[in-house]
Design a protein around this nucleic acid. Structure first.
Ligand SMILES: [Mn+2]
Ligand SMILES: [Mn+2]
Ligand SMILES: [Mn+2]
Ligand SMILES: [Mn+2]
Lengths: 218, 218
DNA sequence: CTAAATTTTTAGATATGTCTAAATCTTTTT
DNA sequence: AAAAAGATTTAGACATATCTAAAAATTTAG
C-alpha cells in the first residue's frame, strides 16, 4: 500500500520534473512539499525500497515507471475533483485547490472512473491544466508563458500554472480568467515587468504573475 | 485539530450508544473499530484530554457535547457522500460504504454544505439511514426491526441498519430493497427465523437478516 | 586546486497510532 | 467471601513521518 505522504512526494517529484530536466534534487522536493531536506532524504530511501523512484545518494532522484504512474494518477484525481467542485458545486476556481489536496488521496479506481464519466471526460481542469487520462496520457498544449512573449503579440489565456487562492484572486481582480484576450504591450527590462491590454484597459503586472499565465498566440 | 483516527473513535462511540444505553465499554469500541482494547484505552485518554469524551477508568465512556457534535458531523458526511455516490455516480447501494469511510474525513465545511445543496438536502441515505442536519439533528422514524413484528403484520421496508456488501447483495438476491412491501407470515421459535411474503413469493430468512430490516407497518 | 559555500545525508528526538503480554480491576460463580 | 473469569489498563515495542543539529559530500569561487 502506498501512503498519503508517499503520494505527495511522488506528485512533487513529477511536478518538478515537468518544469525542469534531469534528476530532481532533494532541496527542490523539500521546497515543493514544505518540509526539511532531512525528511526528504528519509522518504527517498523508502520510495527507493518500494521501487517507486530511482535514487542515488547526493545525485538526485527520478520516478520509475511505477512511480510515474502513481504520481500521474494522483494528479488526475486532483484535477477531476477540482473540476467537479467548480462545475457542480459552484466553487470559485480559487477555492478548490486545498480541498482537492485531500480528495486526491481517496482510494477507489471505480470512484475516479465514475467521476470522470459524470463530468463527461473533461480534458482540462478549472485552471486550464490538462487532466491525465485513465492510462496516464497528459495532453500537451502549444502555449507559452506570458513573460516569454515578445512585445506586440496578441493571445488568449489558456491556463495558469499556479492555483493558490491569493494568485487567482489577484487575477480575478485584474479581470483575467481563462479565455481572456491579452495583448503584450511592453516589457520593462529593469524588472521584467509587463504592460498588457485586456479589452480596453491597460494594466501592468510583475514577471512573477506573467510567468504563470499560459498564452496561445493568435 | 481532530485526526482521522479520533474521528473514527468518536463515530464508533456514537454508533454504539445509539443502539444501547449508559456508558460505552472499551471492548465494545474495540469490536466496532476492529482494534485491540489496549489501543482503545490509549485513545480514550487522548479524547478525554481534548474534552471530546467523559471517561472514568474501568467505568466506560460517553461523548461530551463537543464530541457528539464531531461524531454527528462525520456521520452526516458519510451519508451525504453515500447519497452522492448512488444518486449521481450510479453506484449500487452495496458498493458505497467503504468509499464513504474515506470521504467522511475530508475537512471542509463549505464542501459539505455545497454537497448537501447539490443533493437537494436529502433526509435519508441510500440505506434509509437518516442524514443529520447541519446543526446535528437526527430525525427518528417510527420503524420496527422486522424480527420484532408479530405474525400476520404487513409493512414496508424503510431502511437497513447494516450497509456491508455481503448483506446488501443478499437482500438484492431476495428482491428486497427500500420500499419493498413485506408480510410477516411465521416466526419459528426454534431459531427465531422468519417466513415472509414479498409480492407473490414466500421466502425464509434468518433472525440475523430480519433484525437489520426496518419496517413501517401499514 | 584548494577553500568556502551549498547541498545532502545521518544521528538522535518527538508525536501518533498501533500491537502483544503482563498487571490490575471488576463481575460472576461457587 | 473467596476464587475464577472477564474486562480494562499499563508496559514495552514497533512503524510512520516529522524535526533540528551535526557530519559528510558536492559544487562553486578564488
Ligand atoms: Mn490544484
Ligand atoms: Mn488545478
Ligand atoms: Mn455506510
Ligand atoms: Mn449508509
Amino acid at each position: 500500500m502506498i501512503t498519503l505522504a508517499e503520494e505527495n512526494y511522488l506528485k512533487a517529484i513529477l511536478s518538478i520534473s515537468l518544469n525542469s530536466d534531469g534528476k530532481v534534487s532533494t532541496n527542490a522536493i523539500a521546497g515543493e512539499i514544505g518540509t526539511s531536506a532531512a525528511s526528504v532524504s528519509d522518504m527517498l530511501k523508502k520510495l527507493q525500497d518500494k521501487k517507486l523512484v530511482k535514487y542515488k545518494k547526493y545525485k538526485g532522484v527520478s520516478l520509475t515507471k511505477k512511480g510515474n504512474s502513481f504520481a500521474t494518477s494522483v494528479i488526475r484525481k486532483h484535477r477531476l475533483w477540482e473540476t467537479f467542485l467548480v462545475n457542480n458545486l459552484n466553487f470559485d476556481w480559487g477555492e478548490v485547490h486545498d480541498v482537492a489536496e485531500q480528495l486526491e488521496h481517496i482510494k477507489s479506481e471505480e470512484l475516479v472512473d465514475r467521476l470522470d464519466a459524470f463530468l463527461d471526460y473533461p480534458k482540462f481542469d478549472p485552471h486550464g491544466e490538462p487532466i491525465p487520462t485513465k492510462d496516464g496520457e497528459i495532453s500537451t498544449t502549444n502555449t507559452i508563458p506570458l513573460n516569454k512573449l515578445s512585445e506586440g503579440t496578441n493571445g488568449k489565456v489558456m491556463g495558469v500554472t499556479l492555483d493558490e487562492k491569493p494568485f487567482l484572486d489577484y487575477l480575478t481582480k485584474l479581470n483575467i480568467s481563462i479565455g481572456t484576450e491579452i495583448k503584450l504591450l511592453e516589457k520593462i527590462s529593469f524588472d521584467q515587468s509587463i504592460s498588457i491590454k485586456t479589452g480596453n484597459t491597460k494594466q501592468h503586472i510583475s514577471n512573477d504573475v506573467a510567468k504563470h499565465l499560459l498564452i496561445k498566440t493568435n
